[in-house]
Design a binder for these strands. Sequence first.
DNA 1: TTCATGCATCAGTCCTCTTGATCCATAGAG
DNA 2: CTCTATGGATCAAGAGGACTGATGCATGAA
Lengths: 305, 305
Amino acid sequence: MKLSRQFPLNALRVFEAVARHLSFTKAGEELGLTQTAVSYQVKLLEETLKETLFLRQPRKILLTEAGARLAPKVTEGFDILASAVNEMQGVAEGTLIIHSTHTFASHWLARHLGIFQLDNPTIAVRLETSQAVIDFSKTEADLAIRVGTGEWPGLKSHFVMRNHFTPMLSPKLADTIGGVHDPLDLLKLKIIDPGDPWWRLWFTAAGHPDAPLESASRNRLGSQAVEAAAAIAGHGVAILRPDFYQDDVAMGRLIQPFDLTCEDGSHYWLVYPEARRQTAKLRAFRAFLQKTLPSFDKGPDSGIM
Amino acid sequence: MKLSRQFPLNALRVFEAVARHLSFTKAGEELGLTQTAVSYQVKLLEETLKETLFLRQPRKILLTEAGARLAPKVTEGFDILASAVNEMQGVAEGTLIIHSTHTFASHWLARHLGIFQLDNPTIAVRLETSQAVIDFSKTEADLAIRVGTGEWPGLKSHFVMRNHFTPMLSPKLADTIGGVHDPLDLLKLKIIDPGDPWWRLWFTAAGHPDAPLESASRNRLGSQAVEAAAAIAGHGVAILRPDFYQDDVAMGRLIQPFDLTCEDGSHYWLVYPEARRQTAKLRAFRAFLQKTLPSFDKGPDSGIM
DNA sequence: TTCATGCATCAGTCCTCTTGATCCATAGAG
DNA sequence: CTCTATGGATCAAGAGGACTGATGCATGAA
């Protein structure tokens, strides 16, 4: 209780309202307090300052000289505080901070965010990328795009898209072996990061669970972009998310030899703290995904994509 | 508790300190709170604003963008509030508001206040006169000079001077009857306000309780100055406080024919609310009276004057 | 006179605020 | 790499402050 005694801010706030209305009762109405409470607070302030602030005359009150001198500056002070809070909230509402993996950011968000910004010209977007799973309490972010199962305690998550993958390579490389027609053809080429579990999953799905793959332990975290670059350069076959490389396919830099795609159970999700669900910018972003992605919020098992 | 919920001012104050120190613990020390209390208040504010203000990282905290935007303006707001209170108190301490009867103000205070102001150049004096007994809760005043018995509930009173009186008249008028040598000589002249009870008291004290005086009921409240003016103009004999007319005596405009003075039990007192006893300006004023008036604070029965 | 208005006072209640203990994560020292 | 110090979060408990409703008082208006 010490704080309120050192400097009775609430009493000062009540005083400010009373000074404006020149009425305890009216000030109480403005503040949602009873006249009794107002009287109490004013008295408290007067005792703290050791100055009489109001002259209580029957049926009306007047400011003393001290009170009259105090009131305008107090009003100014509270105005600044109020506007500070308002502006802060306004600005905060007007900036959307997105954390995403580098891959998703560069291959999907970067390409579609323009639509969001056209639809929401008042919202500024800040896009941050990081491979690590961010902690909303330690990092400044309104939302994040994460890969996982969609289960994170305390966070609300919406399904964004499946995280499927399939081998991709440059058409020139395919030509060196007369084209890729069978999954096993791939083994004639250099496999980029053959230790990636996705390879085993894919070959298994293709009916070749025993395909001879080196089982190096290297994790592919964060390297999909590098692998893609290597594949485009013709250094080998990479296992990639085809969605993300449609441009490269269209430009003839990559081909997807098989329709077969695989999944490992983890997908892309939009996540944010449960409590912020209702902010305008979040609603706007959800609406944007809804409009742009047919699969949005439909769960990993319902959508086709 | 409603006020603090609508807009948690104390939490804002805590936030301000934390933002300056970038430390919950240090802010707590500044405010005289524990780290726990600071943590609680910050959390409260964040929940109210629905904005994270600090990023809690191990062994240090950072302001979020929202927090960084909020902090400087909040500091400014509190600075203004603090300076408002300080200035108000400074000004209030620097102004002494005296309420006095018109008579005492014009005949004693006006003549001696110069000394007080020389001794206390930092204190501005505002002198208000009124016949009515003022109510400190309804009128703005630091102290008052009152006539009475010295007993007022809730007020501290110091004896200032006896309220004695004696007949006074113009020397020219005295000459018209060959000088005033015996109290009964006065009856040869016009008595100004013969209904004034002071006349009866004085004649009784002079050994003539049966002096023939008209017993008009008119009260002399506030009219001493008028009576004096009439006496100076030679219109008759007035019963006055000799102290207040020493100048007129010195200038030959009035004479006090008899040394005998009377009292009616009421005297001049300095009064002020008990609670304000220790303010600097009140101490200064008491010291001034002490220095200037031998009778000050000695009680009506001890002093000679 | 009687009524209406507006503040002060009082006693009681609710719940905010604060504390102290404890836990946890990390940076830095050795 | 282990150990220690630092700094914040969490928890339960308790004190005391803020608020309410009823009542009283003084005054201006009808």
